[in-house]
Each structure stands twice: as C-alpha cells, then as structure tokens.
C-alpha cells in the first residue's frame, strides 16, 4: 500500500535537490546575464542584412553592383538603391545610395538568396534599438558596409563556402577567357583595361582568399 503523503515528500526532495544543486553545480544555472554577458549565438543566427566589401576600402571594394534584384525581391520593400554615376552621367555598377529600413525588414533573408554577387549577407548584430524612431533605424551604406573578414568572423563556414565558390568561378572564367581570349560579356565602361572576368568588374578586385588585391 502506498503511504499517504509519500508523493509530497518525494516532490519536496526533488525541489530541495534542485535548490541546493543550483548552488554547487554551475551547469544547472543556464541563465545568461545578458547585458554583462553577451549571448553566444549559433553560427547560423541572422538578424538584418549587411553589405560585404573586399579589401580595406569600402568604396572601392564594395561587391554590390546596384543590380537592384534585392530591392525588387524584398517582400516588405525595405531596400532602397540608387545607382551611382560618373562625371559624364554614365551609370556605374556601384550603388550611390543603399538604404535598408530595419524597422520594416523582417529578416527573411531573400535578399541574400537572390544576390548574384554574394554582396549582401545576414548580420548577427541585434542591439539596434535607439532613441530615435526614424533616421537611426534606416541603415545607410556607411553602416551597412562591413569587410569580408567580419563575415568570416560571424559566419565562418558560410563565408568560406562563399569564398570558395567565387574563387572557383573566377578561375573558370579566367581559364575560359584565356582559351578564347574574348570577353564573355561586354566590359564595363569604367574598367576598360581589365581582362574579362566575372560579370562584375569591381568584383574582380576581391583578392583570391589570402592574397592582396592585385588588379585595379
């Protein structure tokens, strides 16, 4: 026969074990003290998009060609791009304005999927609250641009895969152009002297993995 009240004693033992255990076994306390202790995010964590540039100069190293695919695909339409022009008024493959309204962005990551130049990726920075309702929540180019090394830092596996793919494509293009000695596409007006490469001339400035930028 079951002793009346034995279940209560059993329950009390469990809670006592947990209470005393929480003082002696630190692995029991899984609470992260957030502002002091930064959360360790999983590698595939994503918050808002950012733009990658190669090398050290964000203006010349920017991968984005202002093709505006992301702007068109963005479901909440939070991306705004204006293409840059040179002195003659000819459009160049570089954004003049690239704004993302993160108060609208829903972190879907579609811009990342559609970008043909691997220039937009998801960031892990989430402490973006501000006292200002409007202007500080619209990220402009200066706040969006981050070096490739930063991408390697936050998403190492994904960044390595991206770099590998770009490198492989570049080699293939190089090999093809060396064989045919003709450009696969008409070259861009701003980069007439470069050998035929990837669709984006600026993209070629990206160093292959570890070597410094070779072309201009």
């Amino acid at each position: 026969m079951q002793i009346p009240g034995s279940g209560i004693l059993k329950g009390l033992a469990v809670t006592a074990r947990n209470m005393i255990g929480s003082y002696f076994e630190p692995e029991r306390l899984i609470t992260q003290q957030y502002p002091e202790e930064k959360p360790k995010l999983p590698e595939r964590a994503r918050v808002f998009p950012f733009l990658i540039y190669d090398g050290s100069d964000p203006e010349t190293g920017i991968r984005c060609t202002s093709c505006k695919i992301c702007e068109k695909e963005c479901p909440p339409q939070c991306i705004y791009i204006v293409q840059d022009r040179d002195q003659n008024g000819k459009p160049i493959k570089r954004p003049k304005i690239f704004n993302i309204d993160i108060s609208v962005c829903m972190s879907c990551g579609i811009c990342v999927e559609v970008c043909p130049f691997d220039s937009i990726r998801m960031d892990t920075e989430f402490e973006l609250s501000s006292f200002d309702r409007f202007s500080s929540l619209i990220l402009d180019k200066s706040r969006l641009l981050k070096p490739n090394s930063y991408y390697h830092q936050i998403h190492p596996t994904e960044a390595a895969q991206t770099d590998e793919r770009i490198e492989a494509e570049r080699r293939k293009k190089q090999a093809a152009s060396a064989a045919k000695n003709t450009p696969s596409k008409p070259t861009t007006p701003s980069q007439p002297s470069t050998p035929p490469q990837t669709p984006n001339s600026i993209q070629t400035e990206r160093p292959p993995a570890s070597t410094p930028a070779a072309t201009s």
Binding site: T15, N18, M19, S22, Y23, R28, L29, I30, T31
Partner: peptide, 10 residues
Amino acid sequence: KILARVQNRL
C-alpha cells in the same frame, strides 16, 4: 530567490 533556485534560475 528561493523559488528561482528551485527552478535553476538566479
């Protein structure tokens, strides 16, 4: 505090 410790919180 005690309730939190029982539930392995701080």
